[in-house]
């Protein structure tokens, strides 16, 4: 591969991402940060947990994305009575024309066999049902009646959570939360955005966007993301951030010691680098910068930390902890920081 080829791929990736953003923007008003973060996860090959109040366009965003990508879309509405087989599918007995049993079973595929999966209100299903997603999310495969079924690529799960109406919900277990590359907080729209939303949604129905990226395009983006270079100092910085998030670490700041019970793990570090690569790619760069790590830190790490009792009592949020980590943990070595300080 020559320089021009890599540059061309980079340029194509930028062009693809721009098209995708534009397509989404025809339906979704504002929420640029949310859209960007969803794209980071899509390109990095991770899954996204969207958290926000009802009516903020979470489901619409996912549907729009699926439409734009020309990928098979499935929606699973999680309810307390939803069974794992409702997600994965099951073998059913095949009947003949007379209505008699043929003695043959046929796989009836569940919604998990899509490519863009919307797991709506995932915290309303029982942990057993929630865990049915685990294998699919991690290994991109489903085992039904002892038979392993590999899922089509790209496989992209977007789950939504409603932070209000917590009664009768089942908070996601830590193991499952860790499977999500990002946890994206969907904010309330601004006044301008709200005005545009009202104008757009109270008239004639808006057409779904046409697909702008195909399966192969997405896979190419994902491959290119893996080729993005990361210098050792940047990797070290990511490692320092993860290490400092452990309350028993010597480098942990006071807020971490007080507010957290568990910090981020290895998967958090991997996600940090992957998401940074994705961000660099979307910005047309071939290498990851320190700032990329800092920018992706919040969505990547916020669901991987468990607050301590004291932290919860004091109202310490994981976002505050991450911001403190980014502020305290030095990006470069001490000697370089000293020289930089003396030169400002």
């Amino acid at each position: 591969m020559t320089q021009s080829n890599f540059e061309a791929r980079l340029a194509q990736a930028r062009e693809s991402s721009t098209r995708l953003r534009d397509a989404i923007a025809t339906v979704i008003v504002g929420q640029n940060a949310v859209v960007d973060q969803v794209l980071w996860a899509l390109i990095a090959g991770g899954h996204v947990l969207l958290e926000g109040a009802p009516g903020l366009g979470k489901t619409l965003l996912v549907r729009t994305l699926a439409s734009s990508l020309e990928l098979k879309f499935s929606r699973i509405q999680f309810t307390p009575d939803l069974m794992p087989s409702d997600v994965t599918g099951t073998n059913v007995l095949v009947m003949d024309a007379t209505g008699g049993a043929t003695g043959r079973f046929e796989l009836h595929r569940g919604p998990i066999f899509g490519q863009v999966i919307l797991a709506d209100e995932i915290n309303r299903a029982t942990p057993k049902t929630q865990s049915s997603l685990l294998e699919a999310m991690q290994e991109h495969a489903v085992t039904i009646a002892g038979v392993r079924h590999v899922l089509d690529q790209p496989f992209f799960v977007l789950a939504t959570e409603n932070p209000i109406e917590m009664e009768g919900t089942y908070p996601l277990p830590e193991a499952q939360l860790d499977r999500f590359l990002l946890k994206v907080m969907v904010p309330n729209p601004s006044e301008d955005e709200m005005t545009a939303i009202l104008a757009r949604t109270t008239g004639h129905a808006v057409e779904a966007p046409k697909s702008v990226l195909h399966r192969d395009d997405v896979l190419a983006l994902r491959a290119l993301c893996r080729d993005i270079a990361v210098a050792e100092p940047v990797l070290r910085y990511a490692a320092r951030l993860i290490a400092a998030s452990a309350p028993d670490s010597s480098t942990a700041p006071e807020l971490v010691r007080r507010g957290l019970r568990y910090g981020a793990g290895v998967r958090g570090g991997q996600s940090l680098v992957l998401a940074s690569k994705s961000l660099a790619l979307l910005e047309g760069r071939a290498q990851v910068a320190f700032t990329d790590i800092q920018r992706v830190a919040l969505p990547v790490l916020r669901h991987r930390m468990i607050r301590s009792f004291e932290g919860e009592a004091d109202g310490v949020t994981t976002d505050q902890v991450i911001e403190e980590l980014c502020r305290v943990v030095p990006t470069r070595s001490g000697a370089v920081e000293q020289v930089l300080q003396g030169s400002r």
Partner: peptide
Amino acid sequence: KEAISTALELGSSEDAGAVVLG
């Protein structure tokens, strides 16, 4: 954006290296 650090480390051996070097 850490292009110099990455270039110093990678040289032109990697795919992204050439772009970073530039």
